[in-house]
């Protein structure tokens, strides 16, 4: 009784006018008929979609802003390149100083604090922390390299590809 004779594709083709399905067969299958009705309803509703109307001042507003930059505030292309160059210079200077052994002697130890514990007779001795200027600078170099890559993406590559896409599409 509820067996379908036609596939969804055949029903859609029938709606789109690509094939004609005999109504007698359709009537014999309530499941097909129900599916067809649902698909027709969707077709009808979606086909009745209408254009939305922008405001009456739409054209005037566009015309008054034709030469304005519509890119949202952020780092401009030029500033981005300057910033990128600055970061790269800093990285190279620091890398040069590191390889030259400039920071090899900058190291030391942070003395461990002695903390009294209330209600107890003994005191807690915190361990000493050793630091090395070289390691700290290496971490700063790595952070700067990551920052340079981020700047390269945001300030140079993305604007470049966006511009290219708009120009050549």
């Amino acid at each position: 009784m509820n067996k379908r004779h036609y596939t969804d594709q055949q029903l859609l083709d029938h709606i789109d006018g690509l094939r004609v399905l005999p109504m007698e067969t359709l009537r014999q299958s309530p499941a097909d008929l129900e599916r067809l009705n649902v698909l027709l309803k969707i077709q009808k509703v979606l086909s009745s979609a209408h254009l939305e109307a922008p405001s009456a001042q739409f054209t005037a507003r566009v015309m008054s802003r034709l030469h304005q930059s519509v890119e949202k505030p952020g780092v401009s292309y030029r500033n981005g390149i300057w910033l990128l160059m600055g970061v790269l210079v800093a990285v190279f200077v620091m890398a040069g100083m590191l390889s030259g052994g400039f920071f090899d002697s900058f190291s030391g130890q942070l003395p461990g604090k002695v903390m009294p514990i209330p209600g107890e007779s003994f005191k807690l001795q915190l361990p000493e922390i050793s630091w090395s200027g070289k390691v700290i600078l290496e971490i700063i170099v790595v952070i700067n390299v990551a920052l340079a890559l981020f700047m390269l993406d945001r300030a140079v590559l993305r604007p470049y590809f966006l511009r290219r896409r708009l120009m050549h599409h």
């Binding site: 922008p54 739409f58 566009v62 802003r65 030469h67 519509v70 708009l166 120009m167 599409h169």
Partner: peptide, 26 residues
């Protein structure tokens, strides 16, 4: 609606600014 209006206006401005690069065969 307000956001759509602003986006559509921005798009027209971008199109104007990049019109020279528009591929005329499209």
């Amino acid at each position: 609606r307000p956001e759509a209006e602003e986006a559509a206006q921005d798009a027209f401005i971008k199109a104007f600014q990049y019109l020279r690069g528009f591929n005329r065969s499209a």
